[in-house]
Design a protein around this nucleic acid. Sequence first.
DNA 1: AATCATTTTTAGACAAGTCTAAAAATATTT
DNA 2: AAATATTTTTAGACTTGTCTAAAAATGATT
Lengths: 217, 217
Amino acid sequence: MTRAEENYLKALYHLSDHDDTLVSTTELAERLETKPSSATDMLQKLHDKSLVAYTKYKGAKLSAEGRQKASQIVRKHRLWEVFLVNKLAFGWEEVHEIAEQLEHIKSPELVERLDQYLGCPTTDPHGDPIPDQKGQVVTVYKSLLSDQPKESSVILMGIKDSDTNFLTYLSQKNIKLGSCITILDKEPFDQSMTIEIDGQMHFISKTISNNIYVQAL
Amino acid sequence: MTRAEENYLKALYHLSDHDDTLVSTTELAERLETKPSSATDMLQKLHDKSLVAYTKYKGAKLSAEGRQKASQIVRKHRLWEVFLVNKLAFGWEEVHEIAEQLEHIKSPELVERLDQYLGCPTTDPHGDPIPDQKGQVVTVYKSLLSDQPKESSVILMGIKDSDTNFLTYLSQKNIKLGSCITILDKEPFDQSMTIEIDGQMHFISKTISNNIYVQAL
DNA sequence: AATCATTTTTAGACAAGTCTAAAAATATTT
DNA sequence: AAATATTTTTAGACTTGTCTAAAAATGATT
């Protein structure tokens, strides 16, 4: 498999993550920052290889085989992210781009040894699950911080959209995975919150709280 | 720089390692398992980019800039080899292919952190020197085992041609970097040797001893 | 149901890197 | 020094993945 093929499979994996909906050509092209015509070409190619179920004008989704392949690329991506953060002390906002490259390294042996070396982690530095060799992921129940009531305490479990700017914003405020968050106040008007983390108080907008996954204490 | 360009630079680096001789198109093509016509195309391209000094029908060599670029690819290759052997417990005969892929990962920050993490090694698992950021290498004086006199004792410092089969042969016999070798006997006729390593005796041909670098104790 | 707008596909072109086959230059031999 | 052999380069073609522009299909509107 070429790098381009791998990137298309991965994009399909992310776009039809849980639901089994068909992905449109335009949607796929946007995700990959390319043109719909290019996506069409590739979908036909991947369909010929039985990695994608694609019907002209209707859309595409991964086949069982394609999903397995895609999951292993995601597995590699997230394992490398753990390596970069836990072993090389990169910040969680710095690792995505490097992992985009490392995920294409072809060596099943390497992946398994890396997994062992890292202690077989089940989530990456942003709280996203790491698929196992079979493509299975451990589903951890996560709610959005924005849905939590006033005066409750929760643990930060993940980031919904791991945008670099957002990750940088959080790490500057020393907010990280595992942080204990107490909601001191919640404005009924715009749902902005006053929260407390490690004795520090922060005001956060709904946009922010809506991008943070938490778990009840 | 593309992967192909990097591979050509690296090949030139290895082919005109110490001496500053011109490399022929055929020589380069053979090293890269490609055709001379392809090598010609690429040499012209690299010449246009000032990475290679190339004269039609004469041959090519790296420019200062090209040599620097090449050295950093070799640096990455060898650092990753150290990682694979020292951290992931791969055998020294298993790491070349994987490092061939890892050497193309583009992230200066990653290289420097990896270097630190590994303790800034100066040689790779086969005893080859790791260039520093400037492309400089520490030259360690190494002689060939085949040139050593009978009854001398030496330390194994490196492998001349790190062929997979040869590396496997050595590791099966538990012969590794740093092993102390005593030459018990040396046959005048074919220069085959009887050597002793860690209490184990081995008979080795000239072909073998000629591929092992050692240093006097 | 017919028209209009949008999405998707096709067709043809381009760049990178490779190849084969033929032409040009260099090296070797007599 | 001329003829032959070898090496190197050029020319044209192919593949992968992309693009633009035009055609076809689908969806929305009236």
